[in-house]
Amino acid sequence: MPQPRKHACRSAYNLRMVSPDSERFPYDAAASDAPARLAEAARAIEAHPRERTALLPALLDVQHALGWLPRPAIQRVAAWVRVPVSEVYATATAYSELRLERPDPAMWHVCTGVACDLAGAEDLLLSSPECTVRIDCQFLCALAPVVVDPRERLLGRLTEDTLRARIAMHLEIRA
């Protein structure tokens, strides 16, 4: 079974950001397509009514478009739904699925809910420590242990070998 290099997960993403699935990549303020992507997010925001009740739907749309919630987009949402930026932040930080920082897309998220824990989640974490992080219950308990891959797909019934193989395959595609 091929083993990923140490730090392979991070470097594969951080050094080679251009790829066929670039639409999956999070918004990067320094990238050349940043203004266009912000404009796309703005269009999504402005499809909502200009009311406070549209706050969460607008934030979700921004995250869908950009992968996370960068400051200019948050400011845009705040202005559109007429809510102070401070309160938009107060709301956005309260939801566990909203991301205020650019996510590291290389990570494989290993579910550590009780069923997954019983099914060996810790072994999965230990078997690929450079590429895995913990995540709370993903509600696929019947297919434990569950891993969320870097493209946010849910994978069930993983073993150390199948996870390592998937990571290796993923890195190969990326490289």
């Binding site: 549209a54 706050l55 709301t91 309260a94």
Partner: peptide
Amino acid sequence: VRSGAGGYVCGEESVILNSIEGERPV
């Protein structure tokens, strides 16, 4: 139809009301 954005507490009924109104989910 609306989507939530995570948080065990969001299953609490009054939290959902705040969430729909655009308030903090508490």
